Simulated scan of single mutants.
Amino acid sequence: MFQRLPDRTESSVSFTFNGTRTTACSGDSVAAALLAAGHCITRRSPVSGAARAPYCMMGVCFECLVKIDGQANRQACLITVEEGMRVETQDGAAVVGQQA
């Protein structure tokens, strides 16, 4: 669905999403990196379990909540992807500051 511009020359960084090695451009937000890699689901609703995905990409809607390096409730659209980062889908509600 989402594709990178063909003339981008940024360096790349490697991170994992749900245990799968994924590559992103340096400077990408976690949400942008996930969408560019074809990972559209970032969390599941705590009420119905429905799949949710990044929506506003500016930190207003909270649809992009993920676990990053074991810390839940992180907004993927506001965090820059880093080398070796461990990102996981957040299933349902998580306690603030909860470590996985």
Rank of each mutant, 00 (worst) to 15 (best):
F2Q: 06
F62T: 00
V96G: 10
A72W: 07
A76T: 05
F15A: 12
A24K: 08
G59D: 07
A31F: 08
S11L: 11
S26R: 11
C40I: 14
V13T: 07
Q90P: 03
S14C: 08
R86D: 15
P54Q: 04
C64V: 10
A94G: 07
F17A: 02
E10V: 08
A32D: 01
L5F: 13
T16E: 10
Q71H: 14
C61Q: 04
A53I: 00
H39Y: 10
G84Y: 03
A72T: 12
S45P: 06
A100W: 13
G97R: 11
V30N: 05
N18Q: 11
D69E: 11
T42H: 00
F17H: 04
T80P: 10
K67L: 14
R86W: 00
A53C: 08
E83S: 07
S29P: 06
C61G: 10
H39I: 07
C77E: 05
M1V: 08
M1G: 15
F62G: 00
L65F: 09
T22L: 06
F2M: 06
Y55K: 01
T23P: 06
Q90L: 04
V81W: 06
F17D: 06
P54Y: 03
G92C: 07
Q99K: 15
A24M: 05
S26C: 05
E88W: 04
P54N: 07
C64W: 12
R21K: 13
V95D: 08
A93T: 06
V30A: 03
L65T: 09
A93S: 13
P54A: 04
I68E: 00
S26L: 11
T80K: 13
R43E: 05
T20P: 00
S48G: 12
G59A: 08
H39N: 09
S26M: 05
V95S: 15
G92P: 08
N73G: 09
L78C: 10
M1H: 13
E10N: 13
P6H: 12
I79C: 00
A53E: 07
Q3N: 09
G92Q: 09
A50Y: 08
A37C: 10
C40T: 15
D69Q: 09
E88S: 10
R86F: 02
S48R: 11
G92N: 05
R21Y: 02
G59H: 08
L78G: 09
N18W: 09
I41C: 09
I41A: 07
D7V: 14
Q75T: 03
F15M: 12
D7W: 15
A76E: 02
C64A: 12
A51E: 11
D91E: 13
S45E: 02
L5R: 13
R44K: 12
Y55P: 02
V47D: 08
T42C: 00
L5N: 12
V96E: 14
S26D: 12
F15D: 07
C64M: 10
C61I: 03
D69K: 10
A50T: 10
Y55R: 02
R8P: 01
